[in-house]
Simulated scan of single mutants.
Amino acid sequence: MADLADHHGDQVGAYLRRRLGLTGSEAGGPPRVVRIDRYGLLVSHGRPGARRRTRLAFAQPVAGPAELARLLHPMLCPRAAERA
């Protein structure tokens, strides 16, 4: 997760805003991935003092690292996701 935040923060933030339907005014700061497990992403978002956590579930449990990489690819490469 640290790699996502450190190296791909802009892409991850934009993807999470789209998935959560957040606008800049209601976001209160960039949404961030708190935890990744085989069932999905746990995302923290909202204004300071009123942060919320939302689960973005995968369609099915992830079988391994290769499948996780495939599922995270649209988050990091939005143009590739548009072509698919």
Rank of each mutant, 00 (worst) to 15 (best):
H7Q: 13
I36G: 02
S44M: 13
P78S: 13
L16Y: 01
P61I: 07
G13R: 05
P48G: 08
F58T: 04
G40Y: 06
A2H: 00
G21V: 03
A27V: 00
R38I: 05
R35K: 15
R53D: 15
G24C: 01
A81L: 08
M1A: 04
A50N: 11
R38C: 06
A84H: 10
L20Q: 03
G13N: 07
M75E: 02
R35V: 09
G28F: 01
A59P: 06
V34H: 03
G29E: 01
G21L: 09
M1S: 02
A80F: 11
A59G: 15
R38V: 10
A69I: 09
G9L: 09
R52W: 00
V34K: 09
G40L: 06
A84Y: 10
L20E: 04
H45D: 03
Q11L: 11
R18A: 13
P61R: 12
G29Q: 03
H73P: 05
Q60F: 05
A81C: 11
A2Q: 04
A57L: 14
D10S: 12
R70S: 14
D10P: 00
I36E: 06
A81Q: 13
V34P: 02
R32C: 04
E82W: 10
R17E: 03
F58L: 09
Q60I: 00
L68C: 11
L76K: 10
A14K: 09
P31A: 12
A80L: 13
Y15A: 15
A50H: 10
R55C: 10
A2C: 02
A2M: 01
D37I: 08
L41W: 05
T54P: 00
T54K: 14
R70I: 07
P74C: 11
G24W: 00
E26A: 06
A69C: 08
G49Y: 11
G49T: 11
S44I: 00
R17M: 15
T54Y: 04
S25D: 11
D37E: 13
G46K: 02
P48L: 06
V33C: 12
I36M: 14
I36H: 03
I36L: 15
G46E: 03
R79W: 14
P48A: 09
R53P: 01
R18T: 09
P31Y: 00
Q11E: 15
L71E: 10
V33N: 09
P78R: 05
G24A: 13
R19M: 10
A69D: 14
L56S: 07
L56G: 05
V12T: 05
G29A: 11
A2N: 00
Y39N: 14
R55A: 12
L76I: 09
P48W: 03
L68A: 12
G64N: 13
R70P: 07
L71G: 05
G49W: 10
Q11K: 13
V34D: 04
P48K: 11
R53F: 13
D3P: 00
G24Q: 07
G21Q: 04
H73T: 09
G49F: 07
S25K: 04
S44G: 15
A80E: 14
S44N: 14
H7M: 06
R47V: 07
G64A: 07
P31W: 00
P65A: 15
R47L: 14
D3T: 06
Q11M: 13
G64E: 07
C77H: 15
A27M: 03
R47W: 14
G28W: 02
D3C: 01
C77S: 13
H73W: 14
A5D: 12
V12W: 00
R51F: 04
